[in-house]
């Protein structure tokens, strides 16, 4: 599995995708930083994570990060190399998932510099910041796993990307129309973390959703072996 993680991670930086993800996210983050911290004089680090520009770019960045993972392998035929190796499908999928998640983690670590700036001018709440960090990782984890699943059902990266963007937007916007759907909104769940509380139900939802998507991907790839 380590080989897959290493290869995927490297490919994020031999192609522009890794740089685009980190760069664009940090630009959006800076915009939020400017408005909340410099504009309002707030020292709430967690608000920057929850702000509109950050979430908006994320709707497009996570699909960009995940859309090629499996679709490209199928298109170029390199999946034959992976699937005829002694590696199990589970390890291949997990390797890809971990590599994508590590890009998010690197991005989060980059945002620590903003945290340092805030610390210089005021006293941000450290526990809340840490919980927001965890929440953001869980939040991204769910969308990454869905993105990988979307990538496994088509050999066209663009279609995989559009499916993931659509899913992100639907789970973001729909709850606004119908308050009953509020419980289904990942954004709302993430909001609880930015309030400094780890909600067990939310955490379990994120984790089970991730596991479900990964399992679906594995089952899908396994099944393709017999119908392909």
């Amino acid at each position: 599995m380590w080989a897959i993680i290493k290869k995927e991670f490297k490919s994020y930086f031999t192609t522009p995708i890794g740089y685009i993800f980190i760069g664009v996210f940090l630009i959006a983050f800076s915009v939020s930083f400017y408005f909340t911290v410099l504009g309002y004089g707030s020292v709430n680090f967690e608000y920057i994570y929850y702000s509109m520009p950050t979430i908006l770019v994320l709707a497009f960045l996570i699909p960009v990060l995940t859309m090629r993972t499996i679709a490209e392998e199928r298109k170029t035929g390199t999946e034959q190399l992976l699937l005829t190796s002694p590696l199990s499908i589970t390890k291949i999928v997990l390797g890809k998932f971990i590599a994508a998640l590590s890009i998010v983690l690197i991005t989060e670590l980059c945002t620590l510099m903003y945290f340092a700036i805030i610390c210089h001018f005021g006293m941000p709440h450290i526990t809340t910041a840490v919980i927001t960090f965890i929440g953001f990782l869980l939040f991204c984890m769910s969308y990454i796993s869905f993105g990988i699943f979307a990538s496994s059902i088509t050999e066209n990266q663009i279609i995989a990307g559009i499916i993931s963007i659509g899913f992100f937007i639907i789970t973001w916007v729909f709850p606004d129309f119908n308050p009953n759907l509020n419980a289904l909104s990942f954004i709302n769940m993430f909001y609880n973390y930015t309030q400094g509380q780890i909600d067990i139900a939310d955490t379990i939802t994120f984790i089970t959703f991730t596991i479900t998507c990964i399992l679906l991907t594995i089952i899908f790839l396994q099944r393709r072996k017999s119908i392909k």
Binding site: K7, T14, G77, T78, Q80, L81
Partner: peptide, 25 residues
């Protein structure tokens, strides 16, 4: 296995590719 149409990871160097194959095997 050498599949039809020789699928390869175009962004790797030759050595990286062979090493990657050794790792997954």
């Amino acid at each position: 296995y050498m599949p039809e149409g020789v699928p390869l990871y175009a962004d790797m160097t030759v050595r990286e590719f062979v090493k990657f194959m050794a790792e997954i095997k």
